[in-house]
């Protein structure tokens, strides 16, 4: 049950093996344990608490491949106190890591179903591990659809990978941007607008949704209009977290701690909460 003699608050040191600038304000860090090179197992959708020396610790979803435990990958946007300093770290610098924590995307349960992923902005980061899982067992699923929205073409995350997925014969990838300067000939508009025409069978679909809460609400509305039942929709929530292990109370939503009962929730279990303002 619980782990008495260890301190679950104590991070482990991980070294930065690779820094990748994704967009002007997002970056990806590949990490490896500083001590022994043991793998880091996680499930798609889980997160880690990342600590930057002297600055603080924040929850960041894991965005690498669950089948490649040698590389611990996180993508984040430099917007807060901790992430802005994290953005300045260099190859070989170390971070503190605790995790993996939280619930995961129901990839195994999705076998035999169509899978539709709807996400916006950096919400693609926690869904990339699910994409990897779907692709590595592609034969188990029906049609696989990725609907992705970014603010501008410059904000599209994992651009090379998204392009590659788009070129696959057995994937349906649609990208849209909120606004674009000249030169963009792709979709313009909100990601939810792509749900009505997306090629999936609503009665045999699992939907995975991650993005700002407003996007989640409208995406769920569109999915339900198509006939996707509430218990086949999964959403990932974001809340302030200090501990990541259900002790600090910051991520309380209704009767849930987002850190342990989430971040991935089956929609029917939290829909009452999502309808309340400032919950």
């Amino acid at each position: 049950m619980n782990q008495m003699n260890s301190n679950p608050m104590l991070p482990r040191s991980f070294a930065i093996n690779r820094v990748l600038k994704e967009t002007y304000d997002t970056f990806t860090l590949d990490l490896a344990p500083a001590q022994r090179h043991t793998g880091f197992s996680f499930a798609a959708g889980q997160f880690n608490m990342l600590y930057v020396f002297g600055v603080g610790e924040i929850p960041i979803s894991i965005s690498g491949d669950p089948n490649d435990p040698g590389r611990l990958v996180h993508t984040t946007r430099a917007v807060g106190t901790v992430t802005k300093v994290m953005d300045k770290l260099k190859l070989g610098d170390q971070l503190g890591v605790r995790g993996p924590y939280g619930t995961s995307w129901p990839v195994a349960e999705a076998a035999g179903h169509d899978v539709v992923i709807v996400t916006g902005g950096i919400g693609l980061a926690p869904l990339r591990p699910a994409m990897y899982e779907l692709l590595s067992h592609r034969e188990k699923f029906g049609s696989v659809v990725l609907l992705y929205g970014a603010r501008t073409p410059e904000d599209i995350l994992y651009k090379r990978e998204v392009k590659k997925w788009r070129s696959e014969f057995d994937l349906n990838v649609h990208v849209t941007v909120d606004r674009a300067a000249g030169g963009w000939r792709g979709n313009v508009g909100v990601v939810t607008a792509m749900v009505p025409k997306a090629p999936f069978d609503p009665y045999h679909t699992i939907a995975l949704v991650c993005g700002p809460e407003i996007m989640i609400r409208f995406t769920v509305m569109e999915l339900r209009k198509r006939g996707v039942p509430d218990d086949k929709i999964y959403v990932s929530m974001e809340r302030n977290m200090k501990c990541g292990i259900g002790l600090c109370g910051h991520c309380q939503v209704g009767a849930n701690f987002v850190c342990k009962d989430g971040p991935v929730f089956r929609y029917d279990r939290i829909k009452n909460l999502l309808e309340i303002r400032e919950v």
Binding site: M1, N2, Q3, M4, N5, S6, N7, P8, I245, G246, L247, K260
Partner: peptide, 14 residues
């Protein structure tokens, strides 16, 4: 129940 019954116990409280 808050500090000792979950997957992670708070070692200080416990």
């Amino acid at each position: 129940k808050v500090f000792m019954a979950g997957e992670f116990a708070d070692p200080i409280y416990q």
